[in-house]
C-alpha cells in the first residue's frame, strides 16, 4: 500500500542491460514470500477447484463439475451484480479523496496535521470495530442517523435490513474507511507536482478550479490510476463488512451477498470446498481481466509528466 505511484509503472522499459547476480539476493525474500503465500495457494486453489473435498480433508477429482454447477447457479449472477454495484459505488471515493487531498495540500492551511490525522484514523481502526459502530449508527429504531434525520423531520428507515439501501449503506462505510489511504497517496502525488508548473498556470490567469482541472488532475493521474487499480481489486474482494454489518438472518442478505460471501458460504457453511475454490478462481480471472483492461486503457488518460 505504501508504494509510490511511480513504483508501480516503470517510467521506461528500455533498461535491458543484464542485472548482476546479486540482484537476486534483493528480490529473493520477497519472491519467496510471494511463492509460498500467493503462487502456491493459487495453484492449489486451481487444483482443488477440480475436486470435491471430504468433510475433514481428502478429495476426489470431479473435473469441471464444480464450474458447471457454479455457472448454472443463479446465485452467482446475483453475487456478481451485487459485487459490481458495490465496486462502482466505492469508486466514488476516488474523486472525493482527490478533492480532499488538494484542499489539505493548500499552502498555509491551518490545522493541517489535525485534518490529516482525522482522515487517516479510520485506516488504522479495526474493520470489526468500524462495522460494529456503523451498525449502531444505522440502527433503524435507536440509531444516531435516524435520530438526526428525525430532528429535521425526515423519517429514516432500517438502513441495513432494507434491501433497497443495505448495499449502499455498506459501501458508504467502505468509502469512509478507505478515504485516508487514498488521500495519503494523492498527497504524495501532489507534492511531486513542481511548484513552477503551478506558478505558470497562475501567471496564465488560471483560477483555483481551472488549475485543479487542467493542471492538478492530469499531473495526479498516475496516482489516480494506482488508487483505482488497487481500489477495484479491493472492492471486488469485499467480505468483512458484509459479513459483519449484514450477517445471516438479515432479509437484505440476498441483495448484499458478494462473490466472496458466496465463497464463504460454500466453503465454510456448506462445506463444499471444491465449489468454493471454483468461485475463488472465477473471481481471480475477473479481477485479472479488469486489471489488464485498466492497464490498457491508462494510455488514454494517464500522463507521466
Amino acid at each position: 500500500m505504501s508504494a509510490a505511484p511511480g513504483a508501480v509503472v516503470p517510467r521506461r522499459r528500455s533498461g535491458a542491460q543484464q542485472s548482476p547476480w546479486w540482484a537476486l539476493l534483493f528480490v529473493g525474500p520477497t519472491a519467496l514470500g510471494l511463492a509460498v503465500f500467493y503462487l502456491w495457494p493459487t495453484v492449489r486453489t486451481l487444483y482443488l477447484s477440480f475436486t470435491e473435498a471430504g468433510m475433514f480433508g481428502g478429495y476426489t477429482w470431479v473435473g469441471l463439475d464444480n464450474y458447471a454447477a457454479l455457472l448454472a447457479d443463479p446465485e452467482l449472477l446475483t453475487a456478481l451484480r451485487n459485487t459490481f454495484v458495490y465496486t462502482v459505488i466505492v469508486l466514488v471515493g476516488i474523486p472525493v479523496a482527490v478533492v480532499v487531498a488538494t484542499l489539505l495540500n493548500t499552502p498555509g492551511l491551518r490545522g493541517r496535521g489535525v485534518y490529516r490525522v482525522l482522515y487517516f484514523l479510520p485506516v488504522v481502526t479495526m474493520p470489526a470495530a468500524i462495522a460494529l459502530v456503523w451498525r449502531m449508527l444505522y440502527n433503524g429504531d435507536y440509531g444516531v442517523l435516524n435520530q438526526a434525520l428525525g430532528a429535521v423531520g425526515i423519517s429514516g428507515r432500517s438502513w441495513l435490513t432494507d434491501p433497497a439501501t443495505a448495499l449502499v449503506a455498506v459501501a458508504v462505510v467502505a468509502i469512509w474507511a478507505g478515504l485516508g489511504t487514498s488521500i495519503v497517496i494523492f498527497l504524495a502525488g501532489l507534492q511531486g507536482i513542481p511548484a513552477s508548473v503551478m506558478e505558470a498556470a497562475k501567471l496564465d490567469g488560471a483560477g483555483p478550479v481551472r488549475t485543479f482541472r487542467s493542471v492538478t488532475v492530469p499531473l495526479l493521474s498516475p496516482s489516480i490510476f494506482f488508487v483505482s487499480v488497487v481500489g477495484i481489486i479491493g472492492a471486488l474482494q469485499v467480505f468483512d463488512l458484509v459479513y459483519m454489518m449484514v450477517g445471516r438472518n438479515n432479509p437484505a442478505l440476498p441483495d448484499t451477498k458478494t462473490v466472496v460471501y458466496l465463497f464463504y458460504e460454500a466453503g465454510f457453511l456448506d462445506n463444499h470446498r471444491g465449489s468454493a475454490a471454483a468461485i475463488a478462481f472465477v473471481l481471480l480471472v475477473i479481477i485479472l481481466g479488469l486489471t489488464v483492461l485498466q492497464f490498457r486503457l491508462q494510455k488514454r488518460w494517464v500522463h507521466y509528466e
Binding site: 444505522y138 440509531g143 432500517s158 435490513t161 438479515n250
Partner: peptide
C-alpha cells in the same frame, strides 16, 4: 419485525 430484530 425481523428487520428490527436484525438491527437489535
Amino acid at each position: 419485525t425481523q428487520e428490527q430484530m436484525t438491527d437489535t
